[in-house]
Each structure stands twice: as C-alpha cells, then as structure tokens.
Measured scan of single mutants.
Amino acid sequence: MDVCVRLALWLLWGLLLHQGQSLSHSHSEKATGTSSGANSEESTAAEFCRIDKPLCHSEDEKLSFEAVRNIHKLMDDDANGDVDVEESDEFLREDLNYHDPTVKHSTFHGEDKLISVEDLWKAWKSSEVYNWTVDEVVQWLITYVELPQYEETFRKLQLSGHAMPRLAVTNTTMTGTVLKMTDRSHRQKLQLKALDTVLFGPPLLTRHNHLKDFMLVVSIVIGVGGCWFAYIQNRYSKEHMKKMMKDLEGLHRAEQSLHDLQERLHKAQEEHRTVEVEKVHLEKKLRDEINLAKQEAQRLKELREGTENERSRQKYAEEELEQVREALRKAEKELESHSSWYAPEALQKWLQLTHEVEVQYYNIKKQNAEKQLLVAKEGAEKIKKKRNTLFGTFHVAHSSSLDDVDHKILTAKQALSEVTAALRERLHRWQQIEILCGFQIVNNPGIHSLVAALNIDPSWMGSTRPNPAHFIMTDDVDDMDEEIVSPLSMQSPSLQSSVRQRLTEPQHGLGS
C-alpha cells in the first residue's frame, strides 16, 4: 500500500516538474521574441530617421516606410540591400504576372540599375499617388481596383495617398480587421493593385479616363459626320452624273437629228437641180409651141386668103386666128415678164464666191463646235470609267472633274446653238437673194472655178474651204426642212400651169 502511494507521488512530482520546465521555456521564448521585435522596430526607426529625418517622428509615415521596406525586401531575393535588374524582372513576371514588363521595368529602374530602400522611398515620395486625397483614393478604388463596396470604409478611415504602401503589403490585420475584407480574392486584388500603384505611379486608366471618354465621343461624332458627308456627296454625285448623262444623251439625239437633216438637205439640193433642168426644158418647149402656133396661124391665113369662094369660112377662120394671136401675145408677155430682167453673169459669180467664202467661216465655227463636243464626250467617258472602280463615286464626288465636264457640255451646247442659228439665217438669206436675182447661188462650180473665172489672186482667199464634216446640232433644225426648197423651184409650177393653160385654150379652139 505504501509502495503505491509513493509511486503516485513520484509521478505527480515528475509531471509538475515537466510543466514548470515548459512554462519556463515558453517565457524565455516570449522574452526573446519581444526582444528581437523591439530590436527590429528600433532598426527600422533608425534607418527611417537617417533617410528622412523630418518625417521620422510621424507614426503614419513610419508605418508607410516600414511597408516600403517590406516591399523592397520582397523584391530583393539575395538580401544584399539592392534590387537589381534581374530581381525586378523576376518579381514583375512571377509576382505581378506581367508577361511583357518592358515598360514597367524601365519606369521602375530608370537609369539606376540598383534600387535601395532609400531610392524606393524617395521614388514613392515623388510619386503623384503620395499626394492623393481621400476622394482620389476612393476614385482609384472604384475605377481601377473595381471594389466600390468598400468606398464607405475607405472614407470612414480617411485613407489618403500616404496609406497606399500599407495596402500594398500582406497585412491580415489591416485588410481583415480594419478594412473588414472577408473575401480573400478581394484582399489579394487590392494588394496587387496597390503594389502596382506604389511602384509605377497612378494607372493610365485613372489619369486619362475623362480624356479617353472625350476622345471617344469626338471620334464618334467625327465618324458619324464623315459618313453623313460621304452619303450627301455620294447622292449629289449621282444626281449630277444623272443630269450629265441626260445632257449627253441629248447631244447624241441632236447628232442623229442633224445627220438626218444633212441627208434631207442634200436630197433637197438634188431636187432643186432637177427642177432647174426641168424649167429650162419647159421654157424651150414653150418657145417651140409658140413658134409652131405662129407657123400654123400663118399657114391657115395663107390658105384662107387663096380661097375666095369660102368667105364665110374665111371670116370665121380669121376670127379664130385673131383669138390665137391674142393668146400668143399674152403668152409672150407672160414669158417676157418672167425673163425680162437677167442679172449679169459676173454678178452671179461674185454672189456665188461670196456664198463660198461665208461657208468657209461657217465651217470653221462648226469645227470648233465639233472639237468642244469631242472634249465633252471624252470627259464623260472618263467619268463613266471612274464610277466603275471601287472608290470611283467617292473620288468623283470630291474632285472638280464632274463640274468641269458639266461646264464643257454646256459650252458645247451653246456653241451648237450658235451654229444652228447661223445655218438657219444663212439658208434663209441666200434663198431670198436667189428669189430676187432669179439664178442659182448655193449650187455653184466651187471656189476654185469661181476664183479662176473672176481672175482673182488665190492668195487673197487664204486656205481653201474644208470639206463639210458631220457635226452635231440641236433638234430645232428639224423645222428647217420646208425652207430648204429653192424659190426657183417653187415658181416653176405656177409658170408651167399659166403658160400651158393659155396655149391649150387656143389649140382647142383651132381643133374645133
């Protein structure tokens, strides 16, 4: 029994001894940790006062410096006190997940390849973020970090730009207890964004957000305005092209109309020559008939004078003969009235020469109109080809070629109108001259024959008349068809009918 009691006491004593040793060891460790923490804080404070003595007594600045020092320690893998190029590049790629850190790398180092804690602190103090207000930090939280649900907490804590380094380091107390961020992804996102802002300055999105919006609005307005302008120009170009094509079609119709007119003019001239020949034959025939009538009257007179026994018949025959003579005298007077005045042959040749010289100047004017028309046609064809290209319509709308071609078409039409008026006036004037003179002027042997017949020096006439060419005029020349008939041919039928009527009546009387 005593043995059992003793054994229990030994065990209890051993447990108490072991517990005492454990408590003693724990207290010694706590004392050691407290001592090392105090030494670390003293070291940080001493270093901060050495680097930035004016701010070393500010608790907030001291906390920010400690956060900057921890960031530098995080980047300094070899713990030599300086962050070199390789260490910063590795940190950007692995910790901040930048696949192309060239720009960030140059911004961080600049011309200094080794970055110490002092360099990093001075860079942070010179950053724009260091002077941010609470509102600017909240704006950064909303737009860049995209965590607007913590806006009220940031405003309540009055977190300005000075506190940004403390957000950039992993601090459970700061993010969990103070900021009350329960979501781990939110804490990590805030820490990475803050670290990027401390090292490289304010984000471009935050700094140029309004400018970007303004430029976007301006670009949209310019784009819409450009599209509207292109649409208006395209519609104007199509309308202008439609008008130009309509004018061009009018020129083609006028060309065909003048071609038909020239054919009718040539045909009328041929008919005029035929009528002139018929007139000469008719006059000769009338003279022959008059002579035959005179001979017949003389023969009847002689027969009736030789027959004294038939006085009654003779008297009747003499009366008939007197009627025939009276008819012959009237026919002769009618014929003489139409051919009583004949212009000198020299006057006819001079008038024919005048007509040919006028035709020369008319042909020159006509050729100029043809050239203008050809230029207008070529310009229209070029515009047609340009319209078939990809940007042809837009190019035509913004060039002056369309207006130039339109002006050329209008100029050609005006020139053709002048040529039309000149042709109309010339035909009418020479027709009236032919009526008054009674001989042909338009139809003549040609300028060379006339110059030779009148003994004129050929050098006075200049160049010879160009051959009539096919040219274009407007449709108002169609009503000239009825005026192209020679006035002499219009007189011939009346002359034929009057003479024939007077010759036929006596012959019928003789026949009876």
Rank of each mutant, 00 (worst) to 15 (best):
D82T: 13
E86H: 10
E94T: 11
M75T: 07
N80W: 13
F65Y: 09
Y98R: 05
K73I: 06
G81E: 08
D95Y: 10
L96A: 09
I71M: 08
N80Q: 11
M75C: 11
N70K: 06
K73F: 03
R69M: 02
I71T: 01
I71E: 03
E94D: 00
E90G: 04
L63N: 00
R93F: 09
E94K: 04
S88C: 02
S64Y: 15
E90A: 01
D78A: 02
R93L: 10
L63P: 00
R93A: 11
D76P: 12
L96Q: 12
K73R: 07
H72Q: 08
V83T: 14
E86N: 03
I71C: 08
D77V: 04
R69F: 13
A79C: 03
N97V: 01
G81Y: 15
D76H: 04
A67F: 12
Y98D: 08
D84T: 09
L63T: 07
E66L: 04
L96D: 06
G81M: 13
E66A: 01
N97I: 01
V83M: 09
V85A: 05
Y98P: 13
E86Y: 05
E66T: 05
L96H: 13
S88Y: 04
R69E: 08
F91A: 13
E90R: 04
H72T: 10
S64H: 11
L92P: 07
D95G: 04
V68W: 08
A79L: 04
K73G: 06
G81S: 08
R93V: 12
D89A: 05
D95S: 05
A67C: 15
D77T: 06
F65I: 07
D78H: 09
A67Q: 07
L74S: 04
N80P: 09
H72I: 03
S64W: 00
E66N: 12
F91M: 15
D76T: 15
V68A: 01
R69L: 12
E86D: 02
L63H: 00
D76K: 12
M75K: 01
V68Y: 10
E90K: 03
M75N: 09
S88R: 03
N97E: 00
D82G: 04
D77E: 04
K73H: 07
D77S: 01
V85S: 05
E86W: 07
L74F: 13
E90T: 01
Y98S: 02
V83L: 09
D76S: 14
R69I: 03
D76R: 15
L74W: 13
I71Q: 11
M75R: 06
F91K: 06
N80S: 03
D95E: 03
H72A: 09
L74A: 05
H72N: 03
D84G: 08
E86S: 12
F65G: 07
V85G: 06
I71F: 10
L63M: 01
A79Q: 08
V83G: 09
A67G: 05
N97G: 02
E94A: 05
E90V: 00
E86A: 02
A79F: 04
N80M: 11
S88A: 03
E66R: 08
V68R: 03
A67I: 13
N80F: 11
Y98V: 02
L74D: 00
L74T: 10
S88V: 03
D76V: 10
G81I: 13
H72F: 02
A79Y: 11
K73Y: 09
L92I: 03
K73V: 05
V68S: 01
L92V: 01
E66I: 14
G81L: 11
V83C: 15
E86C: 10
D95I: 01
L96E: 09
V83N: 14
D78Q: 14
V85P: 08
N80R: 11
D82E: 12
D82Y: 08
E87Y: 10
N80Y: 08
V68T: 10
L74E: 04
D82S: 12
F65R: 07
S64G: 00
A79M: 04
D76G: 11
I71N: 03
L63D: 05
E66Q: 02
E94S: 12
V68H: 15
A67L: 02
V68M: 14
E66D: 05
S64F: 10
M75E: 09
D95N: 01
F65P: 09
L63Y: 00
D84Q: 15
N97R: 00
S88G: 07
S64I: 06
A67R: 03
E87H: 14
V85M: 15
H72V: 06
D76W: 15
R93P: 12
A79E: 09
D82I: 11
M75S: 05
A79N: 07
M75V: 04
F91V: 06
Y98G: 05
R69D: 08
D89E: 02
L74V: 07
V83I: 07
A67H: 06
H72P: 06
D78L: 15
F91R: 15
Y98I: 11
L74G: 05
M75A: 10
L96S: 09
